[in-house]
Design a protein around this nucleic acid. Structure first.
Lengths: 346, 346
DNA sequence: GTTAGCACTCTTAAAAGTTGAGTGCTAACA
DNA sequence: TGTTAGCACTCAACTTTTAAGAGTGCTAAC
């Protein structure tokens, strides 16, 4: 029924674990001694030969040990990792009791994650696509400029300058603010449709052009959010792994981290994967980002009610410590969930 | 009178220019053929021997060509670079006509600079140390949270959440806003002294604790500004230069770029150097950042009236194209000056 | 089915040899 | 006195050789 019997699984497991440790191809003798199978190296060799034929492991060259193939890693991730109960990590101390700027929390998280794992960490701010406006305010900053401040449910603060022909008087401003708040509060981006906009403009009367600008600002804020808010940390960690640190590959990878836009496709892929509760693992070519074909990427989404969600990701060599990484991600995911939940309850 | 006669200067110049091109030690024969001095390699050798004794050039090992020493580069930068008139670069197109968020402008600038030079670029936002408050507003975001929005003269927007025990009514909020604006507008950080604070609190009456929080927020905003607002681009460019791209050095440098805090000392050094109009060049050990002892750093400050200023920097190998870099910086400096000036005039 | 043994392969590291750019020095020249 | 040609010498970098070691596949015996 199964492609791999118990013994083959044990051997594959042993090979991969060993390779994760050392980064060196692992030979039959090593397994024979290391594992609790009590088999001679010759027997292991036979099994390895089978495993290679089945595509789970491969030889970098004749008469070298074996290394896991992408398929091998995949099997490992799917079947061989024990789902061990995770303890609370020291990350907890980064949790902020009082409401702080979300951006800082995320940057801290990324830092902790990178330090914990020795790989590269990325975190995106919760996507605002279906996020709700909590508070909105226009202020006259100087004669020709209005400042629009937008606060979302998740306590993200956005602001945008709006140029105007001339200053508005206080009363008008007050009215506009009341109007905007009463009309838009509690609405998410996709709830602000044409009908709502038309009605709003109608009510604004001669100031409908300002309303227009505010809506633009709103759209811009949401959009910017989705495109750019990616926090990374530990990008230089990849230099620690010889298989990634040659000039060519390292440069490509680091550029991808610097130009955060590229990371967005990773996020989109993760978000749209349906697998929203668990953890996503992309091994080698499975990754949506071409530059990362020599890496593995592990992602998780964290969620806040109402479909608002963000992504956490770890990028490292294929031989990353999947168990530890997945563990870390799970923990962080839970914590982020609860942080944002708390803020929301307040 | 001069330590170096005309011929030695020419030879030194030729050596450095050649080395900048190739990155390889340059030998006597090369100079003999390449320069317009019409001297045999033997003569050049004699001169080189002198130059070495004087400390301007050095040999990586016996029987290799010569490379410039830090002192050599220094002489080159100070004396040998022609101060050519710079044309308008394509950077102009990044100039934003309408008032946009400063952060974006700076990030764009950094990108352009890095692309232009093939080195790493950094730009700091104008320091707020002596920056003035232009506008300040408190808003009740929800029952327990106030949002303080601060806009400075340079159109930097800062915001900070303030937790309160209970919601304030509209009228109180209005009064507080008026009080804060009338008291603080036009003041710079160092003008908000104890006397001003005491008076302000007095006027705030029972809400003096909120005023306290606002002042904290203000201090925090200014502080954060100074510590973190550094935009970098092209960090991976250093991998293009073999002398910097070995794992060890590259990793140190890239970490410095990632942890932007380290770059702050560079800024402080530059700002406090007095040399406010021109361009500062740190060669090798001259750099205030230890990690950069194998690099050269070129910085410029741009200014906005009232002592508000920021820093632009280029980090690259010692054999960077100083002429081009200094040119780029000068151009950008002028343009930044004018952009901010324009915003201010508006 | 498992294991021991052996011949064979292939990488890696070290050693030895080769090359060539570049120097320093000396002696001759203008 | 400054310049140049010539030559012996040095040293990094490259190539080749050699040796060692890890690991395999296969066969034959248990």
């Amino acid at each position: 029924m199964q492609e791999l019997d118990e013994r083959k699984r044990k051997i594959l497991n042993a090979i991969i674990r060993n390779y994760l440790d050392t980064g060196e191809p692992v030979g039959s003798r090593t397994i024979s001694k290391y594992s609790d199978l009590n088999l001679s190296s010759a027997t292991i060799r036979n099994e390895m030969s089978d495993l290679e034929e089945l595509g789970y492991i491969l030889q970098p060259h004749t008469s070298a040990g074996r290394i896991p193939s992408d398929k091998g890693y995949r099997f490992y991730v799917d079947n061989l990792i024990a789902d061990k109960d995770r303890e609370v990590t020291q990350m907890k101390e980064f949790m902020i009791e009082h409401t702080e700027r979300v951006e800082h929390v995320l940057q801290q998280m990324a830092r902790a994650l990178a330090a914990n794992t020795n790989y590269t960490a990325m975190i995106t701010a919760p996507s605002c696509q279906r996020n709700k406006v909590k508070f909105l305010q226009l202020s006259q900053v100087d004669d020709e400029q209005l400042l629009a401040v937008i606060v979302t449910e998740g306590n993200m603060v956005k602001n945008k300058m709006i140029s105007t022909r001339e200053a508005l008087d206080n009363e008008t401003l007050l009215k506009l603010n009341i109007l905007l708040n009463s009309s838009l509060n509690g609405l998410s981006a996709d709830q602000i449709n044409l009908a709502a906009i038309t009605k709003l403009k109608e009510q604004a009367g001669i100031h409908s052009n300002i309303v227009s600008d505010v809506l633009d600002a709103l759209a811009w804020a949401f959009e910017e959010d989705e495109e750019l808010q990616v926090y990374t940390s530990g990008t230089t960690n990849i230099l620690k792994y010889p298989e990634l640190s040659d000039s060519q590959k390292a440069s490509e990878l680091l550029s991808a981290f610097e130009e955060k836009k590229q990371l967005v496709s990773l996020v989109n892929e993760t978000l749209s994967s349906g697998e929203q509760t668990g953890i996503q693992v992309y091994i080698g070519d499975e990754s949506p980002i071409q530059n990362m074909k020599d890496c593995s990427v592990v992602t998780a989404t964290y969620q806040i009610g109402e479909g608002m969600q963000g992504t956490i990701g770890i990028i490292g060599p294929k031989r990353m410590d999947y168990e530890n990484v997945m563990d870390n991600l799970k923990t962080l995911k839970v914590q982020l969930d609860s942080v944002f939940q708390k803020n929301k309850d307040k």
